[in-house]
Design a binder for these strands. Structure first.
Lengths: 134, 134
DNA sequence: CCATACGTAACTTTTATAGTTGCATTAGTC
DNA sequence: GACTAATGCAACTATAAAAGTTACGTATGG
């Protein structure tokens, strides 16, 4: 188990799906391949479904499939769907007691926000269809 | 207690020190101001000492002081001294079993490394003496 | 009607970090 | 020289976030 494996799991799974977009995959299949648990897979892919990247079907022949063409799903789409915020944090800073702390927080979070944006931009340059081609 | 408060603690403390560079501060003073524990302070500031940003003195009139002029210590110096790597991770990825995972990891860590660099660059633009002036 | 899938809630396990305690060492002060 | 007050460090505990697990409800194709 590692920290922040959700993004890895999501990207890994979608990259595979990009190869065979029509194939339906079950949570169990995906979990086995990724070395994790079906419930974890459903948790992660559920967020991608909410974001419109995937569709899921219940019942006997159910499973997961891409909701769009692989070329139309960028790594940024995946990242944003998971609410990751790898760099910046959304924490509501509890009333900075001292003015220096306040100024510091403002400046640091400004920098982190810029970096967060450029991360999204960079991730937006690659679609999940392009991942395999190193 | 919050995640990754070490950088906050370090920057906050050094920003204060930048205002009165000659004043000697004890771990206990600093901990009280920051709302934490003297040992935690020594752990964090110890890394800054290793990096040559601070000096410490033992004994009766001991404590902590800047080792350089405040103008000559950037936020990047502090960040790097702590080995933070907020964006990229140093994890040795345990032999990716599948080729897609391999390609993915290569691409993602490439992006993260670039972003990490630009974070350091951005942090390098501000010295701890400049923090107070929002 | 039954097998198989997702959806979700509740709980347990794991891991990183902060926090704490205790003690050795060092250095001023009386 | 004894005393006091500081850092240095090791070992332990506490907390919180994330992953993993179990259990069960719901839907659906055969």
């Amino acid at each position: 188990m590692k920290r922040n494996s959700r993004l890895s799991l999501a990207l890994h799974t979608l990259s595979h799906m990009a190869g065979e977009p029509d194939r339906m995959r079950t949570s169990t299949d995906i979990a086995d391949h990724a070395g994790t648990n079906p419930v974890v897979v459903r948790r992660v892919l559920g967020k991608l479904r909410e974001a419109g990247l995937l569709t899921s079907e219940k019942g006997h022949a159910g499973g997961w499939r891409l909701a769009r063409k692989p070329q139309d799903i960028s790594m940024a789409d995946v990242y944003l769907a998971l609410d990751e915020r790898l760099v910046a944090s959304d924490e509501i800073s509890a009333a900075p007691a001292c003015s220096i702390e306040h100024a510091l927080h403002k400046r640091v979070s400004g920098v982190l926000e810029e970096i967060e944006q450029s991360l999204v931009k960079k991730l937006g340059e690659t679609s999940i269809a392009e991942v395999r081609g190193a």
